[in-house]
Amino acid sequence: MPNYLAVFQNNMLATAQNRYVAKELMELSDKTEEYGIVLSGRDCQEIAEFRAAALAENERIEVGVGAVKRIIEEFCDSGYVNQNNFKETVEGLLECFYTIKSETDDKVSDDEAIEFLKYLFETEAGGDINKLYDSEAFDIFINGQGNGRSVRTEKNGKDREQEL
């Protein structure tokens, strides 16, 4: 099968795509401002670029604005986010989100993944993305739904490498 993705994935189209996503995110400003969070043009552009990188890292394709919009809408009302940490939180959540999608071979829908992340973020993780990503609940969720690959094992491997 020819690699048609390569035909469409060049710098010009990637830039256009990021610009489109950033523009769409800017339209969420009204909603985020209700919770004291102002999304600047630069923030939106950086989130769009981070999203593209997270997709590439997880070997995924998303056309249009996709899940990032839902994540912003869903998390802007959290008591754990503010103007200072919102962009980084969204980026961390994007990473978690695409990890869930890839590791479960898409057995988890976008809604289920976002609902789960919101729950974990508000409870066990207490608004800490690193805690969320390293939590047992996160691994259990993935392993329970997914293809049996153990996220915990991979993480332990990384931890061991760091210790050494």
């Binding site: 099968m1 690699n3 048609y4 993705l5 997709l55 070997e59 995924r60 394709i61 998303e62 056309v63 249009g64 996709g66 899940a67 695409y98 999608k101 890839s102 071979d105 898409d106 829908s109 976008d110």
Partner: peptide, 10 residues
């Protein structure tokens, strides 16, 4: 889902 794996997308 709004995204799929590269393989599925292709």
């Amino acid at each position: 889902s709004t995204s799929v794996s590269n393989e599925k997308a292709n």
